[in-house]
Amino acid sequence: MINNSSSSYTNVMLRILLYIILFLFAFYYLLPLFVMITTSLKSLEEIKTGSLVSLPRELTFDAWSVAWSKACTGIKCEGLKPYFWNSIFIAIPAVMISTFIGALNGYVIAQWRFKWSNIIFALLLFGCFIPFQVILLPMARVLGILNLAGSIPGLILVHVVYGIGFTTLFFRNFYVSIPVELIKAAKIDGANFFRIFWSIFLPLSLPIIVVTVIWQFTQIWNDFLFGVSFSEAGTQPITVALNNIVNSTTGVKEYNVDMASAIIAALPTLLVYIIAGKYFIRGLTAGSVKG
């Protein structure tokens, strides 16, 4: 934004220096990704004799196939594949349900205010900030009582319950800018609550739906605390399986398999970020500067 043109020579030098510094920062952020990718493509032999930052001498995709279908996560050795699907089966319903509930809640709180609606909103908002440690113990018991302990539906329930605070917040902040006259006019025309939501509000909501879906998907896919607390051997999400592969103590340490596994676990959210980065950042800033 600011540019004092004192002498053009120093200016050019300064700009070159500026670009060098910015590229050094880029290098710093990319280095771990670079190391992960190159390590995953090396043989274990080359990892032990070569250097961390060198390119692979011979490309091999063995580590990737081991990570996907053979790596050991404790006693079982079926790779990340089953856990990848677990995460999909947890994330997709949980994202859809929590987004839908959030849209309805946001619509009510922003447009159909009643006596206690602001207090309900404050209670929901407050729930976004709690450290989840404080609900882990009773949640484990309640899941047991509901016969959902260690199951995928149990994890879906947990992610929905603790996701609706955020999804409601996103939709409420979006709908609050729509003038209430819109609803008044629609009511005069005889439209009811659901009809107005369905044919007026939802068609306007595409951007906020995208932001919410991306936010929820990233949160749920990357979740570890709920996954490790409320799953059992066959229902673990991918983050838990990845941690088990990396920290499994049996056999030779296969760093290339660890790195391939880490990339597989990161790929879905990374793809979302690359395809829809704008919406991802919008969710991040809205989710962090809450309120």
């Binding site: 771990p32 992960m36 790195m259 990374l270 991040l284």
Partner: peptide
């Protein structure tokens, strides 16, 4: 885009990557 991509990663992935980079020995 480059500076911000780590935020899209799971902390388990970040931990795994740095555990390898900081590995004493290799």
């Amino acid at each position: 885009t480059i500076y911000l991509y780590p935020m899209a990663l799971s902390l388990i992935v970040t931990g795994t990557a740095w555990k390898w980079i900081l590995n004493p020995g290799l």
